[in-house]
Amino acid sequence: MSITQHQPEAGSAKDTQRNPQPGFRTGRSEFIVVAVLYALAIFLTIGTATMKVQGKSAPGPQFFPILVCIILYLVATLLAIQILRSPKAPDNSVHPGHGQFSADMLHDLGQLGKEEDQKFEDGVSQTPAKTWKTYTDWRTVGIMLAGLVAFVLLLNPVGWIISAAMLFWVVAYALGSHRPIFDVGVGLLFSSITQLAFGAGLGLSLPSGFIGGIL
């Protein structure tokens, strides 16, 4: 899946308040989603066209992928049109549904009025004084991603205890822990407990790495 390719271009969601005249790219960073959908659709198209079909059942194994391709192309195009017509600045407001469920429907069902909407805003009312260039904090996300990649690369060579402790430490550091030395201990404790509980207790096989070789 080509999911990682979109990262560098993702910084286009500029803060609208600081830019009174927003450029074309403002609020249109959602084109990344369109790109992912098209990439997925093209991948499926190539895969379907080059498929080595076994057997002679009708409808065959290519039938359903074609349907999925059509859905993906259609929905990607519609989404692109929608973003072009009405760009959306980052949706900071918290509301019922929060993107997952239709706020309109929940308003009707729950007979929600202004009080309930107000309540959602209570939690985020203190708008931070500082503004940032991008909505997403790419530094934190980047550190976390690097930690994950390092973990997967190190897991087999150095074993679960050390690599998991490293991952724990990196994520805690990225998310704002101020006690790096203490965290090394917490991370090691966490990874050792999981190794004991799930490796010895439940019999899951976790790589022991070079430490396993020494013991």
């Binding site: 989603v33 959908l37 997925l40 499926l44 498929m51 080595k52 079909v53 076994q54 057997g55 059942s57 065959g60 194994p61 359903f64 992928p65 999925v68 859905i71 993906l72 929905v75 990607a76 519609l78 989404l79 929608q82 549904g97 993107g99 997952q100 469920f101 239709s102 706020a103 429907m105």
Partner: peptide
């Protein structure tokens, strides 16, 4: 029940695509 119909269907398409990978049961492809 979703906020935006287009985004809901997009999510559906992604899910259907993820489920397609692998050996097709009936034909073995």
């Amino acid at each position: 029940v979703s906020e935006s119909v287009i985004r809901g269907i997009a999510a559906l398409g992604i899910g259907l695509a993820l489920a397609l990978a692998g050996i097709d049961g009936p034909s073995g492809t």
